[in-house]
Design a binder for these strands. Structure first.
Lengths: 193, 193
DNA sequence: CGCACTCTAAAACGAACGTTCTATTCAGAT
DNA sequence: ATCTGAATAGAACGTTCGTTTTAGAGTGCG
């Protein structure tokens, strides 16, 4: 028997916040939007998140962190070859973007940029997320035999380029930036073999 | 005699909007913030921009477009070698970021992401900007002898990676992502010689 | 001077914001 | 059955939002 996992109010609120912030950022996402999207009331929101909007945003960014990390891990584990694995990532991101009508880009970028240097809690959470994602790529490269420093640097550029290409693709509503980035990153990785 | 160019109210408003949107995005930037920063009144703002906040934001993005294009052009013209020129770009971006205490990233990215798929005017202006910047890089590569299709694709990845690295650097308050991206992009370009 | 026009000033609008508050529902333990 | 504490519901607070409106300077021209 298939049982759809009953999800609690608290988690519904976090998920709704994450999705809304992914699409319109932190400032444009109102608490009433959130409570409507989460099918919860304002009272519930403040019951679970006494720290208000800011605390909720931090939690939502952490949710987006693990969400993106899961996607990344799944794509990276698909093939042994790290260059091919990165191409798999770009493809995954491209289809996700297209299927959401170019609405769902990186779950945390917008909020991260809005808050950089102005809302320490949110910036810190975003910083942790990026570090987390870089770690996944770095470990994959290490396991494939790349030297530590090479893997470290490549991981930086892989994440930066994925982020930039995702944004370019979203703004121009085209998969091209991601497709091209995938090919180029694979070529760059292969150049270090 | 040195005369500081008297700048009109209209341009002060556009510049203030551009800077504020660069730092905190579209939604978080209020018209009263803008009028204060521009040393103008709301009456002046609505006199020059009858279309209100949206029209003003489009103008500010166009301003950020040419601002970033000027920086890009200057760095690209510094050396004949396109790979070195890209490294010069990353250095320029890194010092700009550091000197602004990590506050002034890409002037349009935040607003572009906030509005992607939701505010057509702004998305279009952002799309034009990215296309403009890619054109500058593509032309540079073409002039250096790269084939049309290679230059086209490289321009995509150069802009995507610059954008992503700029964002990573801003969020982690470190020049490392930009420095590493510069080295990798130069290597990628050289691999097509 | 008087007229026309551009620009600035400041007050005021309803709507929406984040937040607080009080009341109520509802299990589970005693 | 009664108490308790978590969870929910919804009204209300003071602010700030984008926008509109009305009035007042400043300037050039006949």
């Amino acid at each position: 028997m298939v049982t759809t996992h009953e999800v609690g109010t608290r988690e519904r609120i976090v998920r709704a916040t994450s999705r809304l912030m992914q699409r319109q950022g932190y400032a444009a996402t109102g608490l009433k939007d959130i409570s409507r999207e989460a099918e919860a009331t304002l009272g519930s929101v403040y019951h679970f998140f006494r720290g208000g909007k800011r605390e909720l945003a931090v939690e939502a960014i952490r949710y987006g962190d693990t969400e993106f990390a899961d996607l990344l891990r799944a794509a990276l584990d698909r093939t042994d070859d790290p260059a091919e694995a990165i191409i798999a990532c770009t493809r995954e991101l491209a289809t996700g973007l297209r299927e959401s009508d170019w609405l769902d880009g990186c779950p945390i970028t917008t909020a991260a940029l809005e808050s950089a240097g102005r809302v320490p809690d949110i910036q810190r959470a975003a910083e942790d997320a990026f570090e987390n994602w870089r770690g996944l790529v770095r470990d994959k490269l290490r396991r494939s035999g790349f030297a530590e420093d090479v893997a470290h640097d490549l991981a930086h550029t892989v994440i930066s380029t994925l982020e930039g290409a995702e944004m370019s693709a979203q703004v121009s509503q085209s998969e091209a930036p991601l497709e091209i980035a995938g090919r180029h990153l694979a070529r760059l990785i292969d150049s270090y073999r």
